[in-house]
Write a protein that binds this DNA or RNA. Structure first.
Length: 653
DNA sequence: CGGAGAGTTGAAACC
DNA sequence: CGGTTTCAACTCTCC
């Protein structure tokens, strides 16, 4: 049953247009779908005499954004599916992929084809906003009308901010209050049953401007060969505007496990949820879903579809609402499914007024300053992170590489990080676990390092949600109860006492008794041997090569630190940094003079022992704990070790 | 102003 | 075993 279109917009999705309307480009970006598309509906309401469904293959995305193999696969699947759907509605239609930067190619195409209006879905991402402003300037300068239509979120993020007193939203209560002012979530727009033909698609007068490929942020994932998606020409190798292939991107085929792209699949997932799992959906409470579940997983797996726009957010909301209408005892925000969607809107409306500073600490007024290890380096002029970072501690760098590659020696952390790398997705609470571990609850490493790894590897990566959640988990914004800390042992055990999840993603531990599955270093040697594994080493390449020499035994690394010691050190550091009370936009953060406020130059108490825990209560002497942990994590300007990245890369081959 | 209570989603002890 | 309390303690809002 197709949902009703909102009464506020004029009806045209089912009517043939007059031949007299304008030629229109619907510029696709974060909305790879036909259903629930306010921007496409708007484009059609103009009664276009010709409609071009266009994707600009943007070099910024190809070269300057971290995109892992899995996310590329998902994107190409979404594009192919959309193209097929357009073609089904009108055989003359398809998704036209044009291989050039939008600000340079859109004016040329509008001139060549006589396009008078360009319509697109609004975006809050900093790059997208700058790009759209540039496009708007160029096009309006030549008399082309440019229309941005909100549609990516439940509410227009700018309107949410306005309803929140002009401030970024930082609590779900603020979002709910803003939503109350803005009225109910709009009904989803129906998929069009008719599309006009595109007009002339000749490119005779269009010369392709080849992009600057270097530096290529994704060089490391192009393991198949050279990237050729631009050199094959502006409309692709067959001059037919085809969706690029993995091969053109230099990528190996990806196995994204249960996650497949495309509007068709997204709507199937949604149909299945509301028809076959309605009672479950109505009772859904996020904190009661297991991060250790796989086959089947414990949540909806819809987040990648929301990222690429293959699932409409209003469609999702109202289909869930229809289930709530049938099950009166349904759950409520923040834990309910609707609650999850509201959190998404919260992050977008937190990002919207902050721009680029939202995704980093520097210059970010929402973000608390913590003297983390491995801080980003910044462009002196813009203050923006450059993508590289300072190795202030060789040990912290080793911790980071071990975390990133799932070799920390804590099986639950490693299983999650390996699932992330293999499938491009982990459960929300699993993300909590590994994020807390990397930052305030273990390694004291900058949340931006973790956010970059997620940016590359997550299929559903969304800058607003990713940066927002990393600040949340690192207790630098949105959340501040840093003494609530996830344990890599207890948290996994609570959900999966048998350790099935760990066995699946850390197969070298498969036969270990459940007594030791979360703490394999505690297993006696004879139990290790009986399970075909030996716990040794620091997880680096040397250990993997030794594997051969272990007489058929698998090698799994020792834990990289005593978790309780690391946790205590971190909490002391957080207490101190909170007491100092700087935020990312503080001049002392920007000019480096913050160092004077942290006399011991690192984590741990700098206010004497006034903030310390009462010793003895947990059976561990405070002085000893802090002293030992500090020895390892002492902040200094160690140089020379360089990145362990290459060693880990070799190890995986 | 001050205290109470809430805040997406902790762990461990205790019933 | 499952629910509740305690642990030690953050910020913000509300009265």
């Amino acid at each position: 049953m197709p949902p009703k279109r909102p009464s506020s917009s004029s009806s045209s999705t089912t009517k043939k247009s007059s031949k007299t309307g304008p030629k229109v480009i619907h510029w696709y970006r974060t909305d790879l779908r036909l259903h629930d598309s306010p921007s496409l509906s708007h484009a059609l309401s103009l009664s276009p005499s010709a409609l071009y469904c266009l994707w600009t293959w943007d070099p910024h995305y190809v070269y300057k954004t971290r995109v892992g193999t899995n996310r590329w696969r998902f994107l190409l699947d979404c594009q192919s599916d959309l193209s097929a759907s357009l073609h089904r509605v009108n055989p003359a239609q398809k998704l036209l992929v044009v291989r050039e930067a939008p600000a340079s190619v859109l004016p040329k195409l509008c001139r060549e084809w006589g396009v008078e209006v360009v319509v697109f879905e609004k975006d809050t991402d900093a790059y997208a906003r700058a790009r759209d402003e540039e496009v708007r300037r160029e096009l309006e300068g030549m008399g082309v009308e440019v229309v941005g239509v909100a549609g990516r979120t439940l509410y227009d993020s700018d309107e949410v901010v306005a309803a929140n007193g002009g401030k970024p939203t930082t609590t779900i209560a603020q979002v709910e209050a803003a939503a109350k002012k803005l009225g109910p979530v709009a009904k989803p727009w129906p998929a069009p049953t008719w599309l006009p033909d595109p007009g002339d698609m000749g490119l005779e007068g269009v010369e392709q401007r080849l992009p600057e490929a270097s530096p290529d942020f994704n060089e490391g994932v192009r393991t198949k060969g050279k990237e050729t998606s631009y050199s094959v020409g502006i409309a692709g190798p067959n001059n037919d505007f085809a969706v690029p292939t993995m091969e053109e991107l230099g990528l190996d085929e990806a196995d994204t496990g249960p996650h497949r792209g495309g509007e068709t699949i997204a709507l199937e997932i949604l149909d299945n949820l509301v028809t076959n799992h309605a009672a479950w959906l109505a009772a859904f409470e996020k904190p009661k879903t297991a991060p250790t579940a796989f086959e089947p997983q414990s949540t909806c797996l819809t987040s990648p579809h929301l990222h690429f726009g293959s699932l409409g957010i209003r469609e999702f909301w109202h289909r869930v609402q229809a289930v709530y209408d049938r099950f009166k005892n349904h759950s409520s925000p923040p834990t309910s499914l609707h609650g999850q969607l509201l959190f998404r809107d919260m992050y977008f409306a937190a990002q919207a007024p902050l721009g680029a500073s939202f995704a980093q600490q520097n210059g970010n007024k929402l973000c608390r300053f913590i003297p983390w290890h491995l801080p980003s380096t910044h462009d002196k002029k813009t203050g923006l992170a450059t993508g590289s970072y300072e190795i202030d501690s060789a040990l912290a760098e080793q911790h980071f590489q071990r975390w990133k590659h799932g070799r920390t020696g804590f099986p639950f952390v490693d299983a999650l990080m390996r699932q992330l790398r293999q499938e491009g997705w982990i459960h929300h609470l699993g993300r909590h676990m590994v994020a807390c571990f990397l930052t305030r609850g273990g390694c004291y490493i900058h949340w931006e390092r973790g956010a970059e790894v997620f940016e590359e590897l997550l299929i559903d990566h969304e800058t607003a949600c990713n940066a927002g959640n990393w600040m949340w988990l690192s207790c630098t914004a949105f959340y501040s109860q840093f003494y609530r800390c996830y344990s890599p042992v207890a948290f996994g055990k609570k959900w999966d006492p048998e350790g099935r999840f760990v066995r699946r993603y850390c197969p070298e531990l498969e036969r270990l008794d459940k007594k030791f599955i979360y703490e394999p270093w505690k297993a006696p040697i004879k139990d290790q041997r009986a399970a075909g594994v030996v716990i040794k080493g620091d997880g680096s390449v040397v250990q993997e090569e030794e594997e051969e020499e272990e007489g058929g035994l698998n090698v799994y690394p020792k834990p990289m630190f005593d978790f309780n010691e690391a946790r205590e050190t971190c909490i002391q550091g957080m207490k101190n940094a909170y007491a100092v009370g700087l935020h990312g936009d503080d001049p002392r953060v920007l000019d480096g003079s913050w160092k004077e406020l942290f006399p011991d130059d690192g984590e741990g108490s700098t206010q004497g022992n006034t903030g310390g825990r009462a010793g003895g209560e947990d059976g561990q002497g405070e002085v000893k704990v802090e002293g030992n942990a500090k020895k390892g994590l002492k902040r200094g300007r160690e140089k020379g070790q360089g990145s362990l990245e290459n060693a880990f890369k070799k190890a995986r081959k």
